[in-house]
Every structure is written in C-alpha cells, then in structure tokens.
C-alpha cells in the first residue's frame, strides 16, 4: 500500500501554485492563520457597514441614498461570503460572532474612525475601498480555494464602490468653495488611516512571513502600500486636492512616490481598542445582535415546526 506523506503533498501543491481545498490535509498553523485572517476580514466587512450606514438617512439625494444602500448591502454580503469561507476550515459562525461581539477578534482599524461629513462617504468609497481592492486583487490568487473564490466575487463588486466614491469626490471638488473644502478635509483625515490599512511595515509585520510562505499573501504590506500611493496620486491631482504630507514627492529613480509613514503608534493604539470609535462600533454590533435575537428564535421555532409537520405527513 502506498503511504502518503501529507506534509510533502501540501508543500508540493503550494510549490506548483495548486489550490488547497477544505478537505485537503493542511498544517494546523496554516488552518489557524487562515481562520484568523478570513474571520477578521469578515468582521471588517460587517463593522465597515457602520461608518457609511451612518449617512444613509442623511444622503443628499435619492440617487445618493440608493447608491449608498446598495454599497452597504454589498459589504454585508461580503461579510457573509467570508464567514462561510472561514467556516469551511472548521470554525463556526457563532464562535466568530462571539469573538467579534466580545471584542476578542480584531477588524480593520480604519473602521474605528468617524465619518463626520458627507465628503467622508466619498473618501471611504474612493480611498478605503480602493486600498481594500489592492489587497483583495492579490487575494484572488491566495492558496486557499474558498477564500480565493470569495475574493473573486468581492473584487467584481468593489469596483462599483470605489467609482461611486470618486464620483462623489469629483462633485464636491468641482463644486462650491465650501464643498471643495469639505473634500479636502475628508482627504486630510482619511489619508494616513488608509495607508495603515496595508498593515505595519514589512520589517515589523509579525504574520507576513508565514503568509508569504504559504502563498496566502503574494505581496508584502509595503509593496501594496507603494502601489496604492502611485495609483492614487493622479486621482488626487485631478481633483485639485493636496495630500497632507509634505514629504510626498515623485522619485524618478524608483519610478514611484516617496511618502511619509503613517503614525504607527496611533495604529497600535487603535488596534488595542483606543481609536475614536472602537467602543461605539462594538456597542452598535452588540445592540443589533441582541435586538435580532427574537428573529433568530422565531425562525428556529418556525423551521422546527415545519420539519415536524413534514415528518408527520
């Protein structure tokens, strides 16, 4: 009988760029890393509904309201795709939700910043979703099948998110002086938190080494951050806005922009729970979860009754 060395098989699949599927053997640490990353990603989508949801009732036109509703609904859908991808690794939805609601699980620190003005809705779509897309395009080729497939669907939908955000910014940037000022203020506040989304610098990134080795990630935090800045600068120039970074300048030698690092002390503080909105976000999630409890109970009871009727018939 042939003896299979599962670890070798796993390594050889990765070396060939093959995809790992739920029933394949995988090292425990690979599984743990994925559960952590995918569930945090899912939580980010769900918590990410809150800053923009804040503006649905105050959207300045019916068109704007429809767009924002559709976008926030998409984010909820993305969370659901990701939760089931994580569940395929052996964790449960209840476990993940519990970790989120008790504050044990992390989510993207960007969603702990407030959306103070209507321009923030534009800045979030354009910059935050733009940065997320950069990461998610890479993750379409991640080594775990269900995660990669969720990413393909998500990337298709995110493109609308970024474009609607930029369109909103163009209206403001080419509007009245007060509107332009509002757009500039949003850019000033969102620029550095957006750069933080790619994670700590490569030299200090604790999870990067394994993620790259296992082909969960295919590019480093710094590479993605640099690409984001290069891609976004022409969009900022078109709007006639300025980046709140006096070190930002074109560097011919590296064929890219030089720019200042975000304040990593602030990043760590926000992750630890001390950002402007951490408590509010967690309270909102807990409130809607507990207020939805009766719906889950009723649905469970109804399904049970349906099954009983079916068995009796």
């Amino acid at each position: 009988m042939e003896v299979i060395n599962f670890e070798e098989l796993f390594e050889s699949k990765l070396a060939k760029n093959d995809i790992i599927e739920p029933k394949d053997w995988m090292p425990d640490n690979y599984r743990k890393h994925l559960i952590r990353q995918i569930s945090q990603h899912a939580h980010s989508e769900i918590v990410g509904m809150l800053p923009e949801g804040n503006w649905i009732t105050r959207a300045p036109s019916l068109r704007a309201k429809l767009v924002l509703l559709a976008k926030v609904q998409d984010e909820g859908g993305h969370g659901l795709y990701l939760y089931t991808a994580a569940e395929s690794l052996g964790t449960s939805r209840d476990e993940m939700l519990d970790a989120l609601l008790t504050g044990k699980a992390k989510y993207s620190s960007i969603f702990n910043y407030p959306t103070l003005t209507w321009a923030d809705v534009g800045a979030v779509g354009w910059l935050v979703d733009g940065a997320a897309i950069m990461n998610q395009v890479m993750l379409q080729r991640t080594s775990y099948g269900p995660y990669a497939r969720a990413m393909v669907r998500i990337c298709k939908e995110e493109s609308f998110h970024q474009r609607q955000g930029y369109e909103l910014m163009t209206h403001l940037a080419f509007g009245t002086p007060a509107q332009k000022e509002m757009a500039q203020d949003a850019l000033n506040r969102w620029w550095f938190p957006t750069l933080m989304m790619f994670g700590p610098p490569d030299i200090e990134s604790p999870n990067s080494e394994n993620a790259l080795k296992w082909r969960i990630k295919r590019e480093t935090n710094d590479e993605l951050r640099q690409r984001f800045v290069n891609q976004t600068m022409p969009q900022i120039e078109y709007l006639g806005l300025t980046v709140p970074d006096k070190n930002l300048k074109w560097n011919e030698a590296k064929n890219g922009f030089d720019f200042s690092e975000p304040d990593w002390t602030e990043f760590k503080a926000v992750i630890k729970g001390n950002g402007p909105c951490n408590k509010e976000r967690l309270a909102s999630r807990n409130k809607s979860h507990s207020e939805g409890a009766w719906v889950r109970e009723a649905a469970t009871a109804y399904a049970k009754k349906q099954n009983e009727n079916y068995e009796a018939a």
């Binding site: 559709a70 859908g77 659901l80 089931t84 669907r153 469970t300 109804y302």
Partner: peptide, 23 residues
C-alpha cells in the same frame, strides 16, 4: 457559487437571491 445560513428552505432561497444574484 457558495453557501449561506438559513433556517428553512424558503429563507434559504430568498437569502441566496439576495446574496448571490444582486447583479
């Protein structure tokens, strides 16, 4: 195309519509 949680058949179908066929 994927999976989802639902309590019964009807809800599974409606959730599938909302989650996987929005476009």
């Amino acid at each position: 195309c994927g999976n989802l949680h639902a309590y019964d058949k009807e809800m599974a179908l409606q959730n599938a519509r909302d989650l996987y066929t929005r476009r």
